[in-house]
Computed example of a mutant assay.
Amino acid sequence: MDKQALDIPRIGVLPSGPLDSICDVGEVTVGHRTLAEGPLQTGVTVVRPHGGDPYLDKVPAAATVLNGFGKSTGLVQVQELGVLETPIALTNTFGVGTMANAQIRAAVAANPGIGRGMATVNPLVFECNDGYLNDIQALAVQESHYADALAAADKPFEQGAVGAGRGMSCFSFKGGIGSASRVASIQAGPQYTVGALVLANFGRLPNLTVAGRPFGRRLAAQLDSGLAQAGENAAIAPEKGSIILLLATDAPLDSRQLRRLSLRAGAGLARTGSVFGHGSGDIALAFSTAYTVPQLPEQPMPAVAMLHEARIDPLFEAAAEACEQAIISALWHADGVTGRDGNQRAAIRDAAPQWRQWLSDTEF
């Protein structure tokens, strides 16, 4: 289902790209492999930065760790060298090693000299813990699922309880994959697009804020006694979830500027009600599709005119707004799921069918 069909709350004032997703940027595509059978509620999501081989044609990138309670792999080299050299994989916490192996095998298959005459490859995998709905101890994610997700990568893609988002929870409801884009106009210059994709698995219901409104508090008050009590307990319980925030832009930024852009994902996250809690792994990564960096030293380095620092603020605004919208999109797209031991997460749009009225209520 698309945003228009679902009538998802519209965040902010900036225009969206035609898809209102991360795939509005360059050649970026997204693919999923979903596992949904009984206690196995998990999967893999892959983001391809371009249609070629990112090991040979690397993409400038940088990351920000907002709160480091996470088990991602590959971030150290991204921070040191400022490039991506594999697609980005998202999965559950116990699937990180499997996905890293799958990325290495795929890169070696395409470039047999890796680790011999050529440099090794840096797999890049992000995770969230889906253990409430998914039997995470079953280690259900396999290397073949990475290949499936990679093969499925396309411009249009599903959001919500799919791929890596299948077993994720958000503000006590069903979370998962969400995406959005915003178009930034640079003064006396061109327009650039910033796209966001999130793996949303965080938040306490009373803190949920939608378009600046205290949506979670009102929703908790409207629920039946059992869920209302859960909302009250959540108000004093520590935040234990996580979120991965990916940003893509076609603006010509270097890795230092991309680190600054990735930091603004935290502004969008905070607007939805997150405080980057102790037990939450909140990591943002930004990359640019404006140019690539060659693996082979005999190939020329790109000659790119970077965006002047004094003109970067519109991109910061677009990044914050796109991330905020992507989180709301994950919540509104996600269908309810029953998983391990009968644990359930309901769809927020089913729990609050009157949400349009709430957001238009001047006394809210």
Score class of each variant (00 low, 15 high):
Ile136Pro: 02
Glu363Arg: 14
Gly279Tyr: 00
Ile8Val: 15
Ala164Pro: 04
Gln142Phe: 07
Asp57Arg: 13
Trp332Pro: 04
Gly115Val: 10
Thr249Arg: 05
His145Phe: 10
Val76Cys: 00
Gly241Thr: 04
Pro112Trp: 10
Leu296Phe: 15
Phe157Ala: 09
Val30Phe: 10
Ser288Gln: 07
Gln354Ile: 09
Ala100Arg: 01
Pro18Asn: 10
Glu321Trp: 11
Leu6Glu: 08
Lys3Glu: 14
Ala62Val: 00
Val13Ala: 12
Lys174Gln: 11
Thr120Ile: 11
Ala265Tyr: 08
Ala61Met: 06
Met301Thr: 00
Gly342Met: 04
Thr292Met: 05
Ile8Arg: 00
Ser179Met: 08
Gln187Asn: 14
Ala318Tyr: 04
Pro18Asp: 11
Pro297Arg: 12
Arg166Phe: 02
Leu35Ser: 00
Pro87Glu: 13
Pro156Cys: 12
Gly117Asp: 13
Gly68Ile: 01
Gly167Val: 00
Pro302Glu: 12
Ala102Val: 06
Ser181Phe: 05
Asp282Leu: 03
Ile177His: 01
Gln222Glu: 14
Pro206Gln: 09
Ala184Lys: 03
Arg48Phe: 02
Ala149Trp: 02
Asp2Gly: 08
Arg345Ile: 03
Pro49Gln: 09
Thr34Ala: 10
Glu239Gly: 15
Pro238Phe: 02
Val44Ile: 13
Ala318Thr: 07
Gly216Pro: 03
Asp350Tyr: 12
Ser21Tyr: 00
Tyr291Leu: 10
Val293His: 03
Gly281Trp: 00
Glu37Ser: 15
Ala234Ser: 15
Ile243Asp: 00
Tyr146Met: 13
Ala320Cys: 13
Asp57Gln: 15
Gly266Ala: 11
Glu321Cys: 14
Leu150Gly: 03
Ile348Ala: 07
Ser181Pro: 04
Phe126Trp: 02
Ile88His: 04
Gln257Cys: 11
Ala347Asn: 10
Cys23Ser: 15
Ser255Cys: 09
Ala305Gln: 15
Gly167Thr: 00
Gln191Asp: 14
Leu6Asn: 08
Ala234Met: 14
Pro60Gln: 06
Arg271Met: 04
Gln41Lys: 12
Leu75Ile: 09
Ser172Thr: 04
Ile8Thr: 09
